[in-house]
Design a protein around this nucleic acid. Structure first.
Lengths: 196, 196
DNA sequence: GTCTATAGCCCGATAGAC
DNA sequence: GTCTATCGGGCTATAGAC
C-alpha cells in the first residue's frame, strides 16, 4: 500500500480549523483572506480552488459545525429514557464541549450567522434546539415538567446553560464547568420541572 | 425666548440613533460611514466633526446605551425591599425594554463590543449585571435563595431572561413577552430560589 | 492543486470651500 | 458646523505560471 505524499484534504482541514477559530475570535468581517492565508500557511489560490468565495467557506464551516454537534448529541442520548435523563445528557454535553472544545461552543453560541448567510435560519431552529423543544413538550405531556409554553421552557433550560457557559468562556467564572455541572444542571431543571 | 433655528444636537442625535440601529442589525464592520451618511441624512463632514473616527462614535453609543439602561433600572427599583421584588423588577424591566425598545435590548445582548473597544470589559461586569450578582448574594445570605455560587445563580436568572428575549426578538416566539412575563419570571425564580 | 502577483473595488478619513 | 470631493490603503477575487 502506497503512502500518500500529502493529502490535499489536510490543507483544507487546516484552513477550516483556522478560519473557524478566527471567525469566532474576531467575527466574519474582521477576518481577511490574507489573514487566513498567513495563519494557516495555505495560499490564497488553494483556498479559492476549494471554495467559491469567503461566504462559501463560512457556510461550509457552519454546516460542518452543526453536524458535528448533532452527531455528538445523538451519541450521548443512547440509553436515556426519562425526560430528565435526556435533558441532563444534553446539558452535560454542552458543558463538556465548552471546556474541551471552546471554539466549537463559541461558534454555536456567539457567531453572527447572518453576516454570511442572507437567508439565515435562527439557530433555535437547528436540530439540537428543536430537539430540546420536543423533549420539553414530551416532559409536559407526561407530567415531569411544569405546564406552560414549550418554547419558553425550552429557552429557560438552554438559556441557563448558555449564559453560564458565556461567563465561563469570557473568563469571569473561575471554576471549571465540570466542577459546577451539578449545580448548573440543578438550576436548569428547577426552572422547568413540575412542582412536587 | 428665541427659538433656535436648527439645533446641531438634532443632527448628531439622528446619527447616534441610526448608527446604533445599523450596528445592531448588521454589526460594526458591516456598517460603513457612507451608509450612515445615506441613512441619517447627515454628511460625512458633520459626523467627523463630532467624532474623531468610527470607533469613537461606537464607543459613545456604547456608553450612552449602558447609562440609559442603568438609569431605568435604578428608577424601577424604587420601593422594592425583598430580593424577590428586586429581581422581579429587573426581569420586568428587561422584558418591557425588549418589547418597547428592541434596538436597545439587542444592543445590550448581542453587540460584539470587542469590535470597537480593544480593552473591552465583558458585559457581565457592567453595573446592572454586577447588581444582579450582588442581589443574588443578598438572597443567599438571608435564605430566600438556594445556597451556591453567586455567579452561577445570577447567570441562571439572567440567562433565562436573555434567551427568552432572544427567541422573541428573532421572531421565533409569537406571543408578546408582556403576555408571557408571569411564566418567564416564574421559571427564572424557580431556578434560584430556596426549596420550601 | 498550488502558488504569486495584481486588478478592481469600497472603505475610513481628510482637505478645503462655504 | 456642514458640505463635497478625493486620497491612500486593504480587501476580495482573479489570472496565469508551474
Amino acid at each position: 500500500m502506497k503512502t500518500r505524499k500529502i493529502d490535499p484534504q489536510d490543507k483544507i482541514d487546516r484552513v477550516i480549523d483556522v478560519a473557524r477559530r478566527l471567525f469566532v475570535e474576531k467575527g466574519f468581517h474582521n477576518v481577511s483572506i490574507p489573514l487566513i492565508v498567513k495563519t494557516s500557511g495555505v495560499s490564497t489560490g488553494a483556498i479559492y480552488h476549494h471554495f467559491a468565495n469567503k461566504e462559501s467557506l463560512a457556510q461550509y464551516i457552519h454546516e460542518k459545525t452543526l453536524f458535528e454537534f448533532n452527531e455528538m448529541l445523538i451519541s450521548r442520548l443512547v440509553g436515556t429514557t426519562t425526560v430528565y435523563q435526556k435533558l441532563k445528557a444534553f446539558a452535560q454535553l454542552v458543558l463538556d464541549i465548552a471546556e474541551n472544545d471552546p471554539v466549537l461552543m463559541q461558534y454555536m453560541l456567539f457567531m453572527r450567522h447572518d453576516e454570511f448567510m442572507s437567508d439565515h435560519q435562527p439557530i433555535c431552529y437547528s436540530e439540537p434546539f428543536v430537539w430540546v423543544q420536543d423533549t420539553v413538550a414530551e416532559g409536559m405531556a407526561c407530567g415531569e415538567l411544569r405546564q406552560g409554553d414549550r418554547l419558553v421552557s425550552a429557552a429557560a433550560f438552554t438559556g441557563i446553560l448558555t449564559r453560564v457557559i458565556e461567563i465561563r468562556l469570557s473568563g469571569v467564572l473561575p471554576a471549571s464547568l465540570a466542577d459546577m455541572s451539578e449545580e448548573i444542571i440543578t438550576a436548569a431543571w428547577q426552572a422547568i420541572r413540575a412542582e412536587k
